[in-house]
Design a protein around this nucleic acid. Structure first.
Lengths: 187, 187
DNA sequence: TTTGTTTCTAAGCGTTCGCTTAGTTTTTTG
DNA sequence: CAAAAAACTAAGCGAACGCTTAGAAACAAA
């Protein structure tokens, strides 16, 4: 055996996530990661292989952080009101986590929208499809909606959620609230 | 007198705009601009001073290109339906212009959301405030809305427009149409 | 045609990028 | 204690970044 690591990979990846969240992928350099994570480049590369590897782990870390609000959404029994609560949670949780730069996943979705990075694209598509199917299940609990209506409304809510995350980076609390309320007045 | 320029600044800035539109600011290098604009770095710097200068001119160029749909919006006499038509125009025009990467202004708004670039920020704030006041005028033509409602709905539409531009980079035509229709279903 | 001015070409400036590697320090084993 | 193995430090790699500059080429005026 030999010397053991002087840092926790879980702890340093949380710091990396925070930095990526604030600055995006391209605007975060490995030198910045060194300082934020508190370890040097050798350790970064031996633990995560590449800057890209650090980012993928950061995305996983983010997903686990926001898992609670997904769980709440899925376990809810109040149909479309659960989705509305989820929208409110989506803008509340990130600001509570110290960084007010929208949603890391949506930011990533936008930053990587026109790249060919398959690993990232897969994570994003996966996330969006999953969210859409949850929306559909919630909408279906209202028996008065036919299948076409449910699908249209699910699409609508998915785009609204996307727009909300983008807008939450620049708009204030009142504007966000007005937006959510009016969004659901259409459902 | 002396040798005259062998290129039109207007023509090369249109090519630069197209490139910035496709790739964003940071992901466009001066070497790429050289090739796209068909002139070399010396000419770029002597005409526009810096990469940043080329970008500002590209934004102006973009604004003039989409001016027609703003004009149509302002000259319309059908209240909120003019805004809806404007939403459709906003996603149609860019695809007709050859590049299907959403709206250059909104892309820029997002890319520069957390920078301190005042010149860019000013252009963006200006654009958004202008759009909001047009929305307010249009909504006011419906006398049944009180002032609070008008303001809330204007905010809502502004965020919806922002989200639409972000979403139009990744969503298909049908999804976009569903989104617009539902957005206006309760206004 | 000569002169003066401007554009153009192309090489290269200093800096930062993601990443690697040589060499030292620390820790666990026989 | 000595040897082996892993983690560490720090220097530096080639490439790309935004930008500059020396010198050749082109053209309008004298």
């Amino acid at each position: 055996m030999a010397r053991s690591k002087q840092y926790s990979e879980q702890e340093v990846i949380e710091k990396a996530m925070s930095l990526f969240w604030r600055n995006g992928y391209e605007n975060t350099s490995v030198r910045m990661l060194e300082k934020e994570m508190g370890i040097n480049q050798f350790s970064i590369y031996s633990s995560f292989g590449s800057k890209h590897g650090v980012f993928l782990e950061s995305l996983k870390c983010y997903k686990s952080k926001v898992f609670s609000i997904f769980e709440k959404l899925q376990n809810g029994t109040d149909g479309v009101n659960d989705i509305k609560a989820f929208f409110y949670d989506s803008v509340r949780i990130p600001t509570e986590m110290g960084s007010n730069k929208g949603c890391l996943l949506t930011n990533t979705y936008n930053e990587f929208a026109d790249t060919e990075d398959q690993l990232i694209q897969d994570q994003m598509t996966d996330f969006m499809n999953n969210l859409k199917s949850i929306f559909i299940e919630k909408l279906k609990t209202d028996k008065s909606k036919d299948e076409t209506t449910v699908d249209k409304q699910a699409n609508y809510l998915l785009l609204a959620k996307h727009g909300l995350a983008a807008a939450s980076r620049v708009n204030n609390k009142q504007e966000i609230e007005d937006y959510i309320e009016l969004t659901f007045s259409n459902i």
